[in-house]
């Protein structure tokens, strides 16, 4: 399974994503500079966290115009797996691949912590190795993670199982319905504010992120096997 990690000016979790894929899966992964349009050779794309273009204008608002996003949009439309973490989530929202919009944290401060979550939907390619309603812990680190959508969208998200992760305990940013991660309707594009790549081995304080990567690999292997 071949992974691409697009790198925008200002991305800073790109190396962490590569390390996670290598450590957990041992699968090949390439950094792809934001000027490259063609991502056809990849089976999955992980849009990393950071501050693409310094978060100027609005988080993700500039990165979504980078040439590489053409490849990301194409991959998503072909049913390939696209995972957006933190700033990657914001970019995918700005690109229209994921619902909702991100506001500044309600307390107006950046927040870094290890955050308890529940896996609301464990039937996705990204979450199948989790149990339903499993309580997990993942690091968060963001200033604009306050997910917002209107009532109608919220109802749709709930009905379609697109709410994938929720914060448990105190909501760290004020997001609607404690939403921490959502998918597109088809379930092949996932965005989440927490960082699974920062929770893969014991000394990191949690290993709960590893299952997201193993889920993706298992999905791909089963798909290849079936073909």
């Amino acid at each position: 399974m071949r992974f691409a990690v697009p790198v925008f000016p200002g991305s800073n979790c790109d190396i962490d994503c590569e390390k996670a894929i290598t450590t957990v899966l041992g699968e090949p992964v390439d950094f792809v500079w934001h000027t490259q349009r063609d991502l056809d050779q990849y089976d999955a794309i992980i849009v990393p966290g950071g501050f693409s273009y310094g978060d100027y204008l609005r988080a993700g608002a500039l990165a979504r115009f980078s040439p590489v996003m053409e490849g990301v949009v194409k991959a998503a439309s072909e049913g390939k797996l696209v995972l957006g973490i933190c700033n990657g989530f914001q970019i995918l929202q700005e690109a229209g691949l994921l619902p909702g919009a991100m506001r500044v944290n309600d307390h107006l401060k950046f927040r870094c912590d290890i955050q308890p979550l529940t896996v609301v939907n464990n039937s996705l390619a990204f979450t199948q190795d989790y149990r339903r309603d499993e309580g997990i812990q993942l690091p968060i680190a963001h200033g604009e993670g306050n997910f917002y959508c209107d009532e109608v969208t919220l109802k749709e998200l709930e009905q379609n199982g697109q709410i994938v992760f929720r914060y448990v305990g105190s909501n760290p940013n004020g997001s609607v319905e404690d939403i921490a991660g959502v998918s597109n309707r088809e379930g092949n594009v996932l965005g989440l504010m927490p960082h699974p790549e920062r929770a893969i081995v014991e000394w990191m304080g949690s290993q709960d992120g590893a299952k997201m990567f193993t889920s993706m690999l298992r999905y791909w292997e089963e798909k290849i096997g079936a073909a």
């Binding site: 962490d16 996670a20 927040r111 870094c112 912590d113 680190a141 960082h195 790549e197 920062r198 990191m204």
Partner: peptide, 16 residues
């Protein structure tokens, strides 16, 4: 104070 700092980026922080 410190929860405003990203203490984990680069995934090498063993003691926060």
């Amino acid at each position: 104070v410190y929860q405003q700092y990203d203490s984990m980026v680069r995934t090498s922080t063993a003691v926060r």
